[in-house]
Amino acid sequence: MNILVCIKQVPGSNKVDVDAKTGVLKRDGVESKMNPYDLFALETAFRIRENRGGKVTVLTMGPPQAEAVIREAFMMGADDGALISDRKFGGADVLATSYTISQAIRKLGSFDLILCGKQTTDGDTAQVGPEVAEYLDIPHVANVLRIVELKEDALILDMDMPHTVEMVEVLYPCLLTVEKDIFMPRLPSYRRKLETSAWPVKTLTFADFEDQDVMKYGLNGSPTQVERIFPPAVNAQREMLRGEAEELAAEVSTKLVHLKLI
């Protein structure tokens, strides 16, 4: 079984600041980590490998320092990994990111199963998985809660729907986005750290891809444009009530009656 897991490097905290003058995110000096939701995808891959044998490859797209998440995945148990990095890929939105990832996957070989996290903690769109599946022309199942059974040619899964849980069977090759808590992720191991520290990490660049149309990558290949970013608004119309508990309670109940809430 050939399994690929897509992982992303994200800021260590999502408490970001916006530069009031330039309206740009202040990312300098912010620590990075692996997107926490991707840990669940990785763990799912390891469990499937334990059951069916095979190989787990990890793939990330980002600046050169994103190699760190590949190394971290090695320490947890990944067998192989590649970094997609090129200046031409900068400023990519979901569409360009997904297209770039799909080109890299085609370059790396063929996979029976591709796993993604549910979403990231920065861009937070939950769209990359399904778009990658579209470009690879394979089915996907999102919001996978549980793996029910691993068959020779298919997976049986529970998928989370608003009011129901659907059990579906999907043939390989396919892509899944897994819910958090599908399995408890393991910690990186020190022994694996020593074993893997000299492993090379392949870097894939624009030159490696079959599709050499620059207009499909990075900012050029991104149909969405972020016009501005700003901190969430605070409510200016609030009314503050202070005083003894008795007065406060009286005021609140009067307001509730007045607003027809009781």
Binding site: P11, N14, K15, V16, D124, R228, I229, P231, P232
Partner: peptide, 10 residues
Amino acid sequence: AFGGNIMAQI
């Protein structure tokens, strides 16, 4: 985005 910490106009 960023878990509700910032807003983006797109």
